[in-house]
Design a protein around this nucleic acid. Structure first.
Lengths: 208, 208
DNA sequence: ACCTGAACACCGTTCAAGT
DNA sequence: ACCTGAACACCGTTCAAGT
């Protein structure tokens, strides 16, 4: 099998996947039929099935490539505080390519579709690992056992980001910074005039 | 229209809804067909459509009644700290009747189905209001403007709970207390030997 | 009024036939 | 090998006909 063919196949898959993503953004996962993807891509049903085993595999491919590059670009970053890392990651939703409601639907489907679950837990796992790496210096500054603190913190950051995504998808857009500021106010700390101070358990500061 | 008929209709709707919920737990929202509900309920397709306009309305009804009673029972409670309120609400997932993965699927569908979105935002809104009421005494103790603090805190608690639900549905079961303890460690405060101290911005305590 | 179940339009998927 | 598009089994929904 010559290499040209591999590159061609990959390009075709991405072409179909990007047509599928356009449909998904418009009509959601359950609202998108293969016929829609056929119309959007200009190919035939058979052509799509010669590149993807079924609709679930197409969805998995879209879901997998959706956030992959953003996480990769994030993988080697380190930050001053957890909030910065979350801000960086959640900024992905500021361009219109990826929308929280599509991500939330993928999560919902993943609880029921084995293949999609594998992809989504991998994506989420890489997010967690990236968080862990990003906050490691911060954790080392704060605790004798920086590794353990970084691991626990990464878990929570992941859940906080998932909460943001679910919250925004359901209740409508909300600036990332406002959200993180509210988290800081309620559970962390906040400086004067609303400026967010890196989340620290032992930070003491007056408000107002 | 005699009252008996209303009661009968309601009972029939609940009968269908509970058959539908059994199917949803087994096979998920997209994996459940009307034919499945027909088989599970022992009624005919037409019978179901004489009680629900369509599959979406059936799903909305199930979703609406799913958490309603638990939120109502929670509506007049007040707690010592935000964590207690979240612990109380999330304890609903300790019985097997309601599962996080069904809730997550409803959220996903809600981003695409208008009727389901209306129901889910109402449910989530009542959760938020219940949180706000529950932490009000705590907020008054902590701030001169207790109302504002309670409102912002309730928003965050909601998102934290949504994060827990999404996290657990995707990555598998995780005890509520462990999760809240991790949140406290990373963003709040933790006492000696792992005992969670009510989340307070200005609480100072050594660890280990 | 509630219910039955056959019928309809549409869905995901397959497959013989083309290039 | 990739692709076409008709065909198939199944889906959500409707509706004439029963009680």
């Amino acid at each position: 099998m010559p290499r040209v063919t591999d590159a061609y196949r990959r390009a075709r898959r991405d072409e179909i996947a990007s047509a599928a993503l356009r449909c998904l953004r418009r009509n959601g996962v359950s609202g998108t039929s293969i016929a829609d993807v056929v119309a959007e891509s200009g190919l035939s049903a058979g052509a799509i099935y010669s590149h993807f085993r079924n609709k679930a595999e197409l969805a998995s491919y879209v879901a997998g490539s959706l956030l992959a590059w953003r996480i990769d670009e994030f993988a080697s970053v380190t930050v001053d505080a957890p909030a910065d890392a979350m801000r960086f990651l959640l900024a992905v939703f500021e361009d219109e390519e990826v929308t929280p409601h599509v991500v939330l639907q993928f999560w919902g489907e993943a609880t029921v579709d084995e293949e999609l679950r594998t992809v989504m837990t991998a994506v989420v796992g890489r997010m967690r690992a990236a968080f862990e790496h990003a906050v490691r210096p911060w954790a080392d500054r704060r605790s004798a056992d920086g590794a353990a603190l970084a691991a626990r913190t990464a878990s929570v950051m992941l859940a906080v980001c998932q909460g943001y995504i679910a919250n925004v998808a359901l209740l409508g857009p909300r600036p990332v910074d406002d959200y993180l500021a509210d988290v800081a106010v309620a559970l962390g700390s906040e400086g004067a005039d609303g400026q967010v101070i890196p989340l620290q358990r032992d930070h003491l500061s007056g408000r107002g």
